[in-house]
């Protein structure tokens, strides 16, 4: 999936994550976690979502407020689809 503009999704409410995805030459992922002990889990969830969508080059920032993995995944995917200018998700490719 090619990132062609900046896409943001989510909020900074409790249990949510605010994700921004921008054009970038490499894949760069920044995690700002409400609880640092979960930062590795958040990173794993975000990387898995990016891999599932085939995003290989982007600057991705995830600021989260105790969001669960499924929320991280949803917000990362929404931001990516918005940044790729796609209205339809590749459902058949998603697990």
């Amino acid at each position: 999936m090619e990132i062609i503009k900046t896409g943001v999704a989510g909020t900074l409410e409790s249990c949510d994550a605010s994700v921004s995805v921008e054009e970038h030459g490499l894949l760069e992922l920044v995690i700002e976690s409400a609880d640092s002990r979960f930062a590795p889990r958040v990173r794993e969830a975000a990387l898995a979502a990016l891999a599932e969508l085939g995003v290989r080059a982007a600057r991705v920032t995830v600021r989260e407020k105790s969001a669960l993995d499924c929320t991280i995944r949803a917000r990362v995917m929404t931001a990516c689809l918005r940044a790729a200018g796609l209205e339809k998700a590749p459902w058949e490719a998603l697990k």
Binding site: D35, S36, R37, F38, A39, P40, R41, L68, D69
Partner: peptide, 9 residues
């Protein structure tokens, strides 16, 4: 199952 396992303190 909900939270996953955190890093130890």
């Amino acid at each position: 199952r909900i939270t996953g396992v955190p890093e130890p303190v």
